[in-house]
């Protein structure tokens, strides 16, 4: 039952997604990036930690196609490994936000009353914190590891999902088709999951992609400030950290420009994919 149901719906959604040009461009860029991040290290035998004692801060050459950094580590290898870290942190922390935020928004909007007041006021309180400062504090208290950065960014992002879900649940719970679910005797849980959730998901999904992009940027900002992912672990943010030095900024663009470009490309692709998913989920769009 469930499999047949999903496959027909999924097929329609995929059809619409593949017809969305920008989303396809974004998806292709992202897929290439992910493949490179996954397989290039073993193919090219890259090691982001090994130090080449013969060249510190060397310009691009045959041995190091993007040169080496100031302690002699291969810059290309660090860029690829940094991508692993950045993408993982971005996606995982957005998932953490989503998993906390969406159920809370759904519950607040469906049950109303006291539940609603408690959840939404807590969300308001969270939203009125200056999040960057909170992240800085938490990161320095909890220790600077990839896991903490992911969890902290993820945990502080739930309010956006809660508010979005809550807002669309409020409008959807009044629709006749939700009343019809009551009239055919569906249980509250099923009404929430089968009738309200699928119809309130579109804004959440775009928001998820934006959140991923934002989390990648937040991680980069943290690392750029020296509080995120710590060297020797590479991330796009702490590669950009080099650009804090004027001489690197001016004279060694090969050190930071590739990381910057990849960051922009990734964030842009993810946003395009978000647009594509939103349009694909809209059953009213023609195939």
């Amino acid at each position: 039952m469930a499999t047949a149901k999903q496959s027909s719906y999924l097929r329609d959604v995929l059809k619409r997604f593949f017809a969305h040009k920008l989303a396809m461009v974004g998806a292709i860029i992202l897929i290439i990036e992910i493949l490179a991040i996954l397989f290039l290290p073993s193919i090219m035998n890259l090691d982001p930690y090994s130090i080449d004692y013969m060249s510190f801060g060397a310009p691009p050459s045959a041995a190091h196609i993007l040169g080496t950094d100031d302690v002699g580590r291969d810059n290309f290898a660090r860029l690829i490994y940094g991508g692993r870290v950045s993408l993982t942190v971005g996606i995982l922390s957005a998932i953490v936000s989503l998993l906390i935020g969406v159920p809370l928004g759904l519950i607040a909007g469906f049950f109303r009353g006291k539940t609603e007041v408690v959840i939404m006021r807590v969300a308001d309180i969270f939203m009125s914190f200056p999040s960057m400062i909170l992240i800085l504090v938490l990161a320095s208290v909890l220790g600077q590891s990839i896991t903490t950065v992911t969890l902290v960014i993820g945990f502080l992002g739930w309010t956006e999902f809660t508010r979005l879900t809550y807002a669309s649940v409020l409008s959807i719970r009044e629709k006749d088709y939700v009343q019809s679910a009551v009239a055919i005797g569906e249980k509250s849980k099923n009404i929430m999951v089968k009738y309200i959730l699928p119809n309130s998901l579109a804004p959440v999904i775009i928001s998820f992609t934006f959140r991923t992009a934002q989390a990648i940027i937040t991680e980069s900002s943290l690392s750029f400030l020296g509080l995120g992912v710590q060297p020797p672990d590479p991330s796009w943010g702490n590669i950009l950290y080099y650009a804090q030095s004027i001489s690197v900024l001016a004279n060694q663009p090969y050190l930071w420009v590739p990381a910057g470009i990849l960051l922009v490309l990734t964030v842009l692709s993810i946003n395009f994919i978000g647009d594509g998913i939103r349009d694909a989920l809209d059953t009213k769009m023609s195939i």
Partner: peptide, 26 residues
Amino acid sequence: RDLRKEIQIIFQDPYASLNPKMTVRE
């Protein structure tokens, strides 16, 4: 809820009373 199988409703607006995310069969 158990009694709902004997008591049903036909809504006024057929554009609002069908869940847009379900097929006719569902």
